[in-house]
Structures are given as structure tokens and as C-alpha cells.
Design a binder for these strands. Structure first.
Lengths: 217, 217
DNA sequence: CCGAAACTGTACCCGTGGTACAGCGCCGGC
DNA sequence: GCCGGCGCTGTACCACGGGTACAGTTTCGG
């Protein structure tokens, strides 16, 4: 909104454009992952952000718009992290199988290095409260999961073309297994308060890929 | 409470003991899985159950007691289903590996036969709203996940003793993988509105177990 | 110094969780 | 046949949170 027609983006000193909005999103994301969207009150957010209720409704038309902004930002960040991960892996090996195995190792390390455990997945949180949200938000969430499937399926197709699998596999199922283990791993890690579970599950997925496609051993 | 000291349980005709309470639990479970605990109002439950607010608070001291009763009942049913599954599998084969593979097949079939998709896991729902609940409830939830680990680890230990794994594996991780794929599979199935994803993930777990322990092929 | 962005302040409505009782109908036991 | 208690109903009331409405204020860049 502050971007002029010539593309120059205006910024402010004290109250920078989007600064308070981002702070609200940060606070909301943390709270939603802890207790869910319905239990996250606008009141607690504005107190923590140091603004008033009117200030909140200046940034978001209603709570639903906050929900949408939250998920959109989350999914965008997710994409960036995975892009970066697979880009780094691509630099380390030529073969798609080994690239994939390296990426999974990097992913597991990244998850293991998180301070404490993984804070939780917004997509999963929304999933268990989905009738609270508009169809648009549910569709956004579904698109996010489908993006994971497409990404992993792409890598797996490349792998399978060069390394025939030991047993017949459905690449979509194998691709979904990544998202499934991440979502499940976050949940189990959280419930058992053991941050190590999630990265270990990623490495178990890596073992499965190795057993399926790797001829050595 | 209606059980006398001699152990005889009293029942009533119209308003049978526990009947309304069970109805409330059924309604609450469905609602909680759809929109989360915080968004499930006592009011909607009593309207659906055909009682008054006072009636609700006769059965449950507060909403927290409802939450606890809900989870307890859910976890108990869970145990019964899995016990039955592994008992049936045990009747069909002697070898622990084949028993396990049969049980996973039965499990996948059971999940595939559910009308629509899996309605959701209460443990996962609670996990993403955990600061709403008492420590007692969080502990109950953790105990439930640990019970899954112990059950699967027990089977896997028997298997590993007879069938040395192709590569070194941590049996706890492999055991957790079951709960992880179930939780993640329910979530992904739900988000993509495709009930087939969950059973397929169970069969993918079965493939992983086969690749790890089965010598043939 | 103008205008717009980024708020504040006030007032008000409704739904929901929760408390506190008092009362009532029905059924089983004695 | 009546007493007691289970399983409710009815009424009244409170605080808090989401949400609406809208007028006014500060701050800063151009």
C-alpha cells in the first residue's frame, strides 16, 4: 500500500511500515502454536505489542485476516527454507539420489540444531481447527501440502529414473511420506517434549530412501 | 458413583446412568476434532444433547474435566483397537515379522474402510492447544504416545532377534515411526481431503519394515 | 505545512465460560 | 407407598473476548 506507482517503497523511522504488523504476526504465530487460534485473544496480542484494539483492526480487518496473513507468511518461509536446503545439497553432489540424501541430512541437522524443540507447524494447527477458517485459508493450507508433494516427487522421479527401486513404489506416496513424517514428527516431539524425535524420523526416512534406491551395501 | 459397595451397578430406564454423559462426550469429540477445544462451546453441546447448562455442569465440574474425560476415553478405545489388531494378526502367523506385517496390512485396511476419512486424532488436536490443558492432561497424552512406542518397540525387538536388520537401526525410532506416520498421515489426509493417504503411508511403513528385516526378494 | 499513515479513545453489542442455588420428576429400595 | 437421590431444569448474574463504529491525534515525508 505504501509502494508508489514508480515502485519506490516508502519507509518510516519510528513506526516503520509493516513493523507493528510483523510484531503482531510474530506474537500471534507463537500464541497460535501454543494454544490454538481460537484461544489466542486479540487482547493478549495488543497488550504484548503495546498497541490498542483499534491499532489491531487498523492492520487486520478481522481475526480471519490475521489467520490468513499468518499462514501465508508461514508457507512462504517454508518454501524459502526448503529451496535453500536443496540448493545447498545440489552444490555438494551431482547424482540426484545423493543430493536428496544430503538434503535430508542437512534438514535433520537443521531441525536438531533448533533451540529447544520445533515450535510447531501452523499448517497442522490450522488443520485441527479448520472449520474456524474460510475456504480460502483451507485451500491455502492444502496448496502448501501439495507443494511439498510436488517438490519431493520431482526429486524422487529424477532418482527413480537413474536408480530403479528395489521394490515397486508409488512416488506420490513416497513424496507424501516426507510431509507426513515432518508433521507427525513435530507432533510426537511436542507431546513427548523431546526435540530429537523429529530429526531422527527424517533420518529414518533417509534410510528408507537408501534401502529403496541405493545399490551399494 | 452409582456402583454400590457390593459391586452391583445400577441402571435406569429413561435417563440411564452415563447415557447423557456419553452423548455429551460423543458430541464434544466430534466438535473438538473439527474446530478445536477452545472453539467448542458448552452451549452448542447442550443444545445438541438436549439438556441445559446446569445439566452439563452436573456431569463435568468444568470444561477441563470434559477435556480429560474425552482424552481418557479416546486413549482407551485406541488401546482396544490396537490390541484387537495385533491379536488377530497373531492368529494368522507364527513368525513375529510376518505377524507384524499382517497387523500393518489389517491396520491399513481398517483405515481405508473408514467412511470418509479418519475423523482426526484427539491427541494431535490437544497437542496443538496444549497450554489450554492441565499438566495432568498433557501427561495423559504423553503416556498415550509412549504406549504406542512401547507396543511397537516390543514387536520390533522380537523381530530383530530373529531377523537381523539389513542396516543398523534404532528400534525406538522405528517404533516411533508408526505413531509419527499415523499422526502425520491423519493430518495430510485431512488437509488434502483424501482419506486414502493415511492407509498408504501405513503400507509404506510396512515396506520399510520389509526392506529392513525380510531376507527374501 | 499538508496529507496520509499509523495509530488512540470511547462506547457499545453479543456470545461464552463459569458460579450459585433452589427446585422437580422419576425410579429403585425398603 | 413413600423416601432419597440421581439427573436433571430454571433463574440470575458476572467477567471477558470478538467485533463494530467512528471521531480524533501524532508523526513524518514530500
Amino acid at each position: 500500500m505504501l509502494e508508489r506507482t514508480d515502485g519506490v517503497v516508502l519507509e518510516r523511522a519510528g513506526r516503520k511500515r509493516g513493523e507493528t504488523r510483523e510484531r503482531l504476526l510474530d506474537l500471534a504465530e507463537r500464541a497460535v502454536l501454543e494454544k490454538g487460534f481460537a484461544a489466542t485473544s486479540i487482547d493478549e496480542l495488543i497488550v504484548a505489542a503495546g498497541i490498542t484494539k483499534s491499532g489491531f483492526f487498523y492492520h487486520f480487518r478481522d481475526k480471519g485476516e490475521l489467520a490468513k496473513a499468518l499462514l501465508t507468511r508461514y508457507l512462504e518461509r517454508d518454501e524459502v527454507i526448503l529451496d535453500d536446503l536443496f540448493d545447498r545439497a545440489a552444490e555438494l553432489h551431482e547424482d540426484p539420489l545423493h543430493r536428496f540424501l544430503i538434503a535430508l541430512k542437512l534438514f535433520a541437522e537443521m531441525l536438531a540444531d533448533l533451540p529447544g524443540a520445533h515450535p510447531g507447524c501452523l499448517a497442522a494447527s490450522y488443520c485441527y481447527q479448520d472449520t474456524l477458517f474460510s475456504q480460502e485459508i483451507r485451500d491455502l493450507n492444502a496448496a502448501g501440502v501439495r507443494a511439498w508433494r510436488a517438490r519431493f516427487r520431482g526429486h524422487l522421479a529424477e532418482i527413480a529414473a537413474l536408480h530403479p527401486p528395489r521394490i515397486p513404489v508409488d512416488l506420490d506416496v513416497l513424496a507424501d511420506m516426507a510431509a507426513t513424517l515432518v508433521e507427525g514428527g513435530i507432533m510426537v516431539s511436542r507431546v513427548l517434549r523431546d526435540g530429537a524425535i523429529l530429526p531422527k524420523q527424517i533420518l529414518a526416512y533417509r534410510d528408507h530412501i537408501r534401502l529403496l534406491f541405493l545399490r551399494e551395501h
